[in-house]
Design a protein around this nucleic acid. Structure first.
Length: 147
DNA sequence: GCCAACGTTGGC
DNA sequence: GCCAACGTTGGC
């Protein structure tokens, strides 16, 4: 799950412990949030548009997909007039802080780990802010760093 | 700040 | 349904 650290970083989540992952306004990412997440699932926190960009920690899904209430609030920057209580359009999950890695796993680092050649985030033009990670990919990364 | 890649919109 | 124009993402 990607976020620009200037907007919300792993340090913010460490302080807050738990937060809603609101504001996703892309249909493909929305479908993942709505359909694919389960409570208790583990996710990588990825800093995008950063120096460097990369994976900075782990989160747990504290609440699976439910309507993104910011889309229903006309005062909110993520307001979408096309959404409604009856037809919410946009979804979010709640995430809980697990750990911050001692060092960022940068994109360059990821490219050097065997077994990640097909990983979504390493593909050219991969912009999706919510992406599936295969269990083998997750294990490869964790094993590589001894986590 | 540049720009490639991708998503969305809207005229036809 | 096609596709050009436009907007956004995100690495660099």
């Amino acid at each position: 799950m990607k976020c620009e650290p200037s907007a919300y970083s792993i340090d913010d989540l460490e302080k807050e412990r738990i937060t809603s992952w609101e504001g996703v306004r892309n249909f493909q990412a929305r479908n993942f949030l709505r359909d694919k997440f389960d409570t208790g699932d583990i996710a990588f926190f990825y800093h995008s548009n950063a120096a460097p960009s990369g994976i900075v920690g782990l989160m747990k899904i504290a609440k699976k997909g439910y309507p993104d209430f910011t889309a229903l609030n006309p005062k909110h920057k993520y307001y979408d007039p096309n959404s409604s209580q009856e037809n919410p359009i946009w979804y979010m999950v709640d995430v809980e802080f697990i750990k911050k890695f001692p060092q960022i796993i940068s994109l360059q680092d990821l490219r050097n780990i065997k077994g990640l050649e097909q990983m979504e985030v390493l593909k050219k033009g991969s912009r999706l802010s919510v992406q599936p990670v295969k269990i083998e990919e997750f294990n490869s990364i964790m094993r590589h760093y001894g986590y």
